[in-house]
């Protein structure tokens, strides 16, 4: 192992960390909004539910990389797009990558949200209805808090999986961690050292996020932990 080389490569790779994080945060935010929109659509009507199902089916059934290519390279096929006011945005690899990551995350997150909502027991909802709560109060005080707690572990996995997915942005020339690593390799041909360093950065990042989500889960749902009080039920 060439310690000097590694000491030199680490800071270079870390320079890509802000972009990696930004891509992840933006796509998670956008994806979250899309997921909320999809569950609204699902609740609206039969047609709406089928449209949401189709969206999820398409985005979960195809590789993310092809979704990125379709947006980045594919849209340019149409003169109408190239001449539209949006073109200065859509020709940016950054915008295309975020767009694809968002659309993709929205599909997965909507399934997680759906699972969380389904796990809210009818008993808890009945107890809320019978106490004269309005639908809004019920949603705010009972349904969403329970669904969120239920979905948290799965959503934590989705967060880490999005952080990893941002590495695909390197394929459309973005210089986040993987992009920088790839460029360094083509200069130095020292693939093993460089990619291992990049992997270590992701590993630490993902571990930190997983720990944070665990902490939040423990904090929000202490009742899932067995404690001194014996459950006799």
């Amino acid at each position: 192992m060439d310690i000097a080389f590694i000491a030199q490569i680490f800071p270079k790779l870390l320079a890509g960390l802000p972009l990696t994080l930004l891509l992840a945060v933006l796509s998670l935010l956008g994806g979250g909004l899309i997921a909320l929109g999809l569950s609204g659509l699902r609740a609206s009507s039969w047609i709406g539910a089928r449209v949401a199902d189709f969206y999820v089916y398409i985005f979960r059934g195809t590789p993310l990389l092809i979704q990125i290519f379709l947006i980045y390279y594919g849209l340019a096929q149409f003169p109408a797009v190239r001449h539209s006011v949006l073109w200065p945005l859509l020709r940016e690899p950054y915008v295309c990558a975020v767009l694809a990551l968002m659309l993709n995350d929205g599909a997965y997150t909507s399934e997680i949200l759906r699972g969380g909502l389904r796990a809210v027991s009818t008993g808890a909802i009945e107890a809320a209805r019978v106490s004269g709560m309005t639908r809004l109060t019920m949603l705010r005080r009972i349904v969403l808090p329970l669904a969120f707690r239920q979905a948290l572990p799965a959503y934590g996995a989705e967060i880490t999986s999005m952080v990893k997915a941002t590495s695909l942005a390197s394929v459309v020339t973005l210089m986040e961690i993987t992009g920088i690593a790839r460029a360094e390799v083509s200069e130095t041909y020292r693939a093993i050292e460089i990619f291992l360093c990049a992997a270590a950065i992701y590993l630490v990042l993902v571990t930190v996020i997983a720990r944070a989500v665990d902490w939040l889960e423990q904090h929000l749902s202490p009742y899932r932990r067995p404690t001194g009080a014996r459950s006799l039920a």
């Binding site: 027991s121 008993g123 107890a127 019978v130 106490s131 004269g132 329970l146």
Partner: peptide, 19 residues
């Protein structure tokens, strides 16, 4: 809602809010 607000209902399976 006003009607429900004047009743206290106790379920067979308790239905406490777990959170």
């Amino acid at each position: 809602r006003r009607l429900r607000g004047q009743l206290g209902f106790v379920f067979q399976s308790f239905n406490l809010w777990p959170h």
